[in-house]
């Protein structure tokens, strides 16, 4: 099936599935800009472009993706904070924007934006080399008890790094936690045996996973992942750690209620679209819709826990 076909089918499916009321209240703008801080081809960029393809017909608007790179989200946040709060511009948020707000003291930070809705959680997994000696998370901890462990996270200021530091504390073991320039570099060092385990997004390693070169030891989600039914959660393994790497949308402060409602309806509708489901399941994203009322407190809670962690570890003074 070509792309054109898919888009056409998605549009048909969306029209068929749309409740009559949603179809009647048209979105007040014809063009909506979706801002991402990632470069073309990056994680958030691919997420937004896929979303735009299916969400556009549902909302009846033209969605344009704009890459506002630089400063790990600092420039994108400034762009949003100074834009009119009328629903014409929306920003794709991930934990990165919280970390940048806390670490880099940008002019505009996450508090200047209004969390709109959440869309997905990324599955964070613990993995090792398939021909390596480790088979469970317990093996990893046991190995780190006898000899200093070698663990890896994608980037310095990241949720994965934080998770490993917390796991190390909880298990009371010694481990070097090495950060990288991205999930790909990390995977290479797990494959060549420099590191015993890595923690990263499932979608980054799915190629090697499918080829049988990597083994998943645990998932950081609250429940087991549908695609990996035999893999236990970290919680089941005895450590009370759950990672929620969120992917959602935020807008300028003071969005009108009807705009918020339109997004809440449209996101729920697009998540139920079977064609879009094929796309996001292949990318190992778990749908995790959160309404505007829940998302604000969720983001605040996430930020305060992250800040506490950064202060405790001395990164923030």
């Amino acid at each position: 099936m070509t792309f054109r076909h898919r888009i056409y089918l998605a549009a048909v499916a969306a029209l068929a599935a749309a409740p009559p009321c949603a179809a009647q209240t048209a979105y007040p703008h014809e063009v909506v800009t979706l801002v991402t801080h990632s470069s073309p081809g990056g994680g958030s960029d691919v997420f937004l472009r896929d979303l735009a393809r299916y969400l556009g017909p549902v909302m009846g608007v033209k969605l344009v993706v704009e890459n506002v790179r630089g400063g790990s989200g600092a420039r994108a946040m400034a762009r949003l904070a100074n834009a009119p709060a009328d629903g014409r511009i929306v920003y794709a948020v991930t934990p990165t924007y919280i970390y940048t707000s806390l670490l880099s003291h940008p002019v505009n930070n996450y508090k200047d934006l209004e969390p709109l809705v959440n869309v997905f959680f990324d599955e964070e997994i613990v993995y090792t080399r398939a021909d390596g000696p480790l088979h469970t998370l317990a093996d990893v901890i046991a190995a780190a008890r006898s000899r200093r462990g070698r663990w890896g996270a994608s980037t310095p200021a990241s949720l994965e790094r934080q998770a490993l530091e917390q796991l190390k504390l909880a298990a009371g073991v010694q481990a070097a936690i090495v950060s990288h320039d991205g999930g790909g570099d990390l995977m290479l060092n797990v494959l060549n045996g420099t590191l015993e385990i890595g923690v990263g997004e499932a979608q980054e390693i799915r190629g090697q996973l499918a080829a049988g070169r990597l083994r998943v030891l645990a998932v950081f989600s609250a429940e087991r992942v549908a695609d990996l039914p035999d893999v236990p959660t970290v919680q089941e393994s005895g450590y009370d750690l759950v990672l929620t790497k969120f992917r959602g949308l935020a807008g300028p402060k003071g969005l009108p209620d009807e705009i918020i409602l339109a997004w809440e309806l449209a996101i729920q509708q697009v998540l139920a679209d079977p064609d879009y489901r094929n796309v996001y399941e292949a990318a190992m994203l778990s749908p995790a819709f959160m309404s505007h009322a829940d998302y604000g407190p969720f983001i605040d809670d996430f930020a305060s826990r992250t800040e506490a962690y950064l202060r405790r570890t001395g990164v923030l003074q």
């Binding site: 073309p40 190629g207 499918a210 080829a211």
Partner: peptide
């Protein structure tokens, strides 16, 4: 990014 957008997952397979 171009590969991923077309659902092509790099790796031995």
């Amino acid at each position: 990014g171009g590969l991923l957008v077309h659902g092509l997952i790099p790796g031995p397979r």
